[in-house]
Design a protein around this nucleic acid. Structure first.
Length: 481
DNA sequence: TGAAATGTTGGGGCG
DNA sequence: ACGCCCCAACATTTC
């Protein structure tokens, strides 16, 4: 027999929102809601949040706690093994149920399974969808197998998604009023950088939290989405959605984004073509989760084991030059500096810097994955792993290894006025456009007039493009044999 | 969601 | 008028 006044625990994870939240809505229908966030560093192992993500998490939790507080509730913060924390909360409060959103990271899925196993016989323990457009199990080929190629995956997904309505936030949530559960102080979790405080660029760039997420989406639809198909490839413009960190932390659901874009297209605010081009990117996000569910080792191991024999190089000094944006290739350096400063990088440039690390420098994609994990505010286990394997050629439906981006021509093609490179590599800002992406080809007189001395103000190229390309192709041939 | 090498075509200069 | 060459522009292939 359950006491209908007993609290229902809503266990938050990367679903830090109040609207379109299936677990929260179901909890609210059952009884007073006791919201809790558990930080379980042991369970996360190597995949606990990196530095930039910790900064975001702090502000997102702070925002969620404030908004719950304004409604008369209290978000509980707890540190420890999730199953133990939740068990003690159940004992202290007599909770009748634990509801939560499904997690897909292998460690988190395992953690949720343990909670269900340990507590599921004593009370109702339920997980709900919400982080994806479709659950990985919902998308299958005709013979019932998971997809390994994006285009048919997306076609099959579109056939199933249809019209969907995001759930509104419950008007008045009945929050649990007991004070018998202690909460950590968020500041004590020390998620923010102090010495030194490197988060200045992050503060200028982002507004974490559910309100910020919806403002970002509205701004995108109003100003940029209609030009998305063209503008998204121009890193010097502001025509991408920048929703990735909000989506990662679940401040907004892909469902809500889908609905908003479809409605904007329906009333002619943006073209249907633009909406579809953007929603396709949400499709890549779902596809990454699909692959991670199919192959849980995706963050650690080559999806295609042919790459197990690839002769990766390991060179700490070169890796550090890549990380710090000192490779001597302006577009690569611009991207890496944008990442370091803002916790984010334009997607076109991510492909270029990724290709440069694994092909020009022939370093293992895991070195890039680790760096992005630590520095991106949108670091996401599924997307990060799938994308690095894509660029390395080791993934499912990946770019072939011989597809090697030319950092000069990419810069000239997608940053034709040099706005992006000039902003992030200011020491080159006075170079004429002709030489901006290849300063080593500029006559010394032109360099001098732009105030650039190669090797002093800006590095010589870390490798020769042609030689590096040929060495990469040769290494690939060797590993095939 | 490349780039480079190689092949083909066609216009124009020129002997 | 004609053949030859050059080369840009485009297409195909190879990596």
């Amino acid at each position: 027999m359950t006491d209908s006044n007993a609290p229902v625990i809503c266990w938050f994870y990367n679903d830090l929102r109040l609207s379109d939240h299936a677990a929260l809505a179901a909890a609210a229908e059952l009884g007073p809601v006791l919201p809790i966030y558990v930080r379980d560093r042991a369970a996360a192992g190597n995949w606990q949040e990196g530095g930039a993500s910790q900064w975001w998490l702090h502000h997102s939790l702070d925002d969620l706690a404030r908004r719950i507080g304004e409604q008369g509730g209290r978000l509980v913060l707890a540190d420890g093994a999730a199953e133990e924390v939740l068990e003690s909360v159940v004992e202290a409060t007599g909770a009748q149920a634990i509801f939560f959103s499904r997690a897909y990271e292998p460690w988190a899925a395992e953690q949720q399974r343990r909670v269900h196993e340990q507590l599921g016989e004593r009370l109702s323990v339920k997980r709900f969808p919400g982080r994806l457009l479709l659950e990985p199990e919902q998308v299958r080929t005709n013979d019932g197998r998971p997809y390994k190629v994006f285009t048919p995956f997306w076609r099959a997904s579109l056939a199933q998604i249809g019209d969907r309505a995001a759930r509104d936030m419950p008007d008045q949530l009945d929050w649990y009023q007991g004070d018998d559960v202690a909460s950590d102080d968020l500041a004590a979790w020390a998620l923010l950088p102090t010495k030194p405080d490197w988060a200045g660029g992050l503060r200028e760039s982002w507004q974490p939290g559910e309100v910020g997420a919806h403002e970002r989406l509205r701004d995108f639809v109003t100003h940029a989405a209609d030009d998305y198909a063209e503008g998204r490839d121009r890193p010097g413009k502001d025509h991408t959605s920048r929703l990735s960190p909000h989506l990662h932390f679940g401040e907004i659901s892909p469902n809500q984004v889908w609905q908003t874009l479809k409605m904007a297209a329906g009333v002619g605010e943006i073209s249907g073509q633009a909406a579809d081009a953007y929603l396709r990117e949400l499709g890549w996000r779902d596809f990454s989760y699909h692959l991670l569910t199919l192959f849980p080792a995706l963050p650690e191991e080559n999806f295609r084991d042919q790459f197990d024999r690839f002769p990766w190089r390991s060179d700490e000094a070169e890796l550090e030059r890549w990380q710090r944006g000192q490779t001597g290739y302006p577009l690569v350096d611009a991207g890496m500096r944008q990442l370091w400063h803002t916790g984010w990088m334009h997607n076109r440039v991510r492909m270029v810097v990724g290709s440069f690390l694994v092909k020009h420098l022939r370093q293992h994609w895991r070195a890039g994955e680790d760096w992005f994990w630590d520095t991106l505010v949108d670091a996401d286990l599924a997307s990060n792993a799938a994308s690095w394997q894509w660029v390395a050629g080791s993934g499912a439906d990946a770019a072939p290894y011989f597809r090697i981006f030319n950092p000069m021509s990419q810069g000239e093609k997608f940053d034709p006025d040099g706005a992006y490179v000039r902003r992030w590599v200011p020491e080159l800002k006075d170079l004429p456009q002709k030489f901006l992406n290849r300063p080593w080809e500029a006559p010394v007189e032109i360099l001098r007039r732009a105030g650039v001395e190669l090797g002093k103000d800006y590095p010589h190229p870390i490798v020769d493009h042609r030689e590096a390309r040929e060495a990469a192709l040769a290494a690939f041939q060797d590993s095939k044999a």
